[in-house]
Amino acid sequence: MIYLTKGIKQSEYKGYRETNGDFYNLVELTRKPQQAFNKSAKQLAEYKQNTAIYAIYGNITGMKRKDEVINRTVLFIDVDDESNYSEASKRLDDLLGAYDINHVIYPTISNGIKEGARLRVGVELGKPVNADDYLKLWSVLLVSVRLHGDQTAVNHSFKQLQGLFVQTEQNSDNRPIIYDTGHGLPVDEFIKLYDANTNKYKVQKRVVADISDDEAGFPRWVITNRLMLNTIMDPESNFQRFGGWDNMLTALGGWVFKDTQNFVTTAGIVEYVNNKGSNPIEESELVNKFKTWAKGWH
């Protein structure tokens, strides 16, 4: 079932069924997007509030926004403040394409206005999933590509509306990606991946994890130092505690530089930890990232 609403202030949905499936509707709305050209950032913010079309693909107990979302048939991932559109979209496209999973990727209405990657991914699901399974699938995909996504729809509100593609003057250089010749994501297989390694895929909200029972009473700096040392020894098991691989490396670099005031030593540690990953950042890319991160350490 497809539920649409114009703007985010409406109290009811307009719903209908697409004979070709929910994902087909998303593909068509990505191929023929809404357009909002010649608008300032302020005007686009108003457009988001009052005019843009939002959707939920799945099943809801009724037709009002207050009604419960039972399940979803399309999984959405929002990526903000991470690298850039071309890099982040390629990571996601490569992963999903390798599994022959149908998906669309498009710049959000904030792309080109706010810094960093601003994109949304819609992934066809092989079967409808509830909130718990949705979180597991969302986590596996993001951890696999080492990106940090907006957790609102998975941790706070399963009812969250998803903005569809709106082409603007500001985001028109970043073209959408449409992959619709494959199949839906094999839900059961990906849930097994999550259940088999919960610590790896569990999404953490804070840069420094919540204090556990055996850390209670210790100063924050002790807990931070423990986390950093554990990260150096085993980054694959700890990077999600920082919200992503890139976030882990820059946090670790800042921690080392704080006590050494030496960029060479810091770069060596960052490179060492990066190379311990199963899919490390390429050297040339890491050099560029390091230069950007280092500006913040001053």
Rank of each mutant, 00 (worst) to 15 (best):
V203K: 11
T51Q: 14
D22T: 04
R91F: 02
D173S: 15
R175C: 10
G163D: 08
N102D: 13
L161H: 04
N102L: 04
V273D: 02
Y99V: 02
Y272R: 15
N20M: 13
N84R: 12
A153P: 03
T265K: 14
K289M: 14
G21I: 01
V187Y: 00
K127V: 07
R226I: 09
S40I: 06
V187E: 07
N130Q: 12
V27L: 11
K192L: 11
D210K: 14
F239G: 02
M1F: 05
T73I: 07
N247W: 08
F190P: 00
A153G: 15
A196N: 15
D93L: 07
E28N: 15
Y54E: 08
K66I: 01
K127P: 03
K48A: 12
K9G: 12
S278T: 15
F290V: 04
E285H: 06
K42F: 10
S110R: 03
G254W: 00
V74Y: 01
T231Y: 06
E115Y: 07
L286A: 07
G277L: 14
D80F: 02
P33V: 03
R65S: 04
F239D: 07
V287Q: 15
I77S: 03
T152W: 09
T250M: 13
G21P: 05
N59H: 14
W245T: 04
Q162V: 10
S83Y: 07
Q204M: 13
K127I: 06
V27I: 11
R31W: 04
T265N: 09
S284Q: 12
S40Q: 12
E285G: 09
S139W: 01
L147T: 04
V79S: 05
S284M: 12
R226E: 10
V203N: 10
N50L: 09
V27R: 01
Q151V: 14
V140E: 09
E12H: 10
D195T: 10
N230W: 09
E46D: 15
M233C: 12
D195W: 10
I177W: 05
N238M: 09
A216G: 07
V104Q: 07
M63G: 08
N275F: 05
I178A: 09
N247K: 14
G97C: 08
G21C: 11
R72G: 02
V74F: 05
A196I: 08
F218S: 13
L227C: 13
Y99P: 00
E282Y: 06
M233K: 15
M1E: 10
R118Q: 13
V256S: 02
T30R: 11
T231K: 06
S212I: 14
L193R: 10
W297N: 06
Y54G: 03
G254I: 01
L161Y: 00
K64Q: 12
N155R: 15
G126C: 05
